[in-house]
Computed example of a mutant assay.
Amino acid sequence: MHFTAVSCAERGLKSHLLLRGEQPEILTGYNLISTIYGDVTYVPRSIYSRRMTMLKTHADLVASNTGHILCCNDILESSLSDHSSTSSSGHIDAHGNTENHSRKIIIINEGAGDVVALLGVIRLVQYLCQSHLLGKERQIKLVVDAGTGTTAVGLGIGAQCLGLPWEVTAVMLADTIDAYRQQEQKLISDFRTRFGFHLTDHCLNEVDGVVHWVGRCHQRKFGNILEGEIETCQHIAQQTGILVDPVYTLAAWEMATQLSREEMEGGAQVVMLHTGGTLGMFGLAQRYKSYFSKLKEGLSSVKVAPH
């Protein structure tokens, strides 16, 4: 979300960010960056659970009586149906002002969970399959953590459309396997509807799907962490230089480690896609003070040997 705020600021657009839960006592990490770049509203968890209703209600408040509300998919539909839409939608200058039209309020779904987001992920696949990176010939097991699941589906679609021998494994974080499969089917169906004319040699089957969905190694409610996981993240960082967080990327790391042990010599190469999330460690340090105090105690007990 903070990436969206930064991108909007760079283009002279104002962003309104809806964050789940309560404002922390001290702003750090994502909360701090979001507040610096955008207009932040903290939403009670009971209201946030009805995401689209929450987004549309807030968009109505921002739009008031002078704004026109759109979703990203609406813009995509307009672009595909009329390539000359700029002549009919008004001119937008460098400061985001429109001529002859009311203000436009754009709703971006949580986790960018719309079909338009798939295009960026497919572009990522196209980048990764270059010969100096993963290449197009090797068997790859690509592992990713899944919030909304959109990134995983985009990876799967990209691999199929480019004819890559890749298998995408997504670790489910926030919902049931049925919910993830329904989201996958919807995204594939929307993708076929909007971009199917580009698909000639490859077929996307929303029934079979393009992602292998798996559960966390250690189950819990989304957003919660378990005792010992902060120390695990610390160990991974010190041993590899890679920073993972216990809410998102630790789940993918653990699954990738498990799969790499299962692969026989000469089998598929296991690749974990790091999706970010590490700024969230600052917020976790406020919520789980006792867990981070153990880290501090552990560090203070380390003695440096004299030369």
Rank of each mutant, 00 (worst) to 15 (best):
V40P: 13
T41P: 07
Y42V: 09
V43S: 02
P44Q: 03
I47C: 05
R51W: 00
M52G: 04
M52W: 09
T53N: 03
T53P: 01
T53I: 05
K56Y: 14
T57C: 08
T57E: 12
D60R: 11
L61H: 00
L61G: 07
A63Q: 05
A63H: 04
S64V: 01
N65D: 14
N65H: 10
T66A: 08
I69Y: 04
C72S: 07
I75Y: 11
S78L: 08
S78E: 04
S79F: 08
S79R: 06
H83F: 06
S85K: 05
S87A: 05
S87Q: 07
S87C: 07
S89L: 12
S89E: 09
G90S: 00
I92L: 07
A94M: 10
A94N: 09
T98M: 03
E99S: 14
E99A: 12
N100H: 01
R103F: 02
I108T: 05
N109H: 10
N109D: 15
G113R: 04
V115H: 13
V116K: 14
V116A: 15
V116N: 15
V121L: 10
Q126N: 14
Q126I: 10
L134I: 15
G135D: 00
G135S: 02
R138E: 11
Q139C: 00
I140F: 00
L142G: 05
V143M: 00
D145P: 06
A146I: 08
A146V: 07
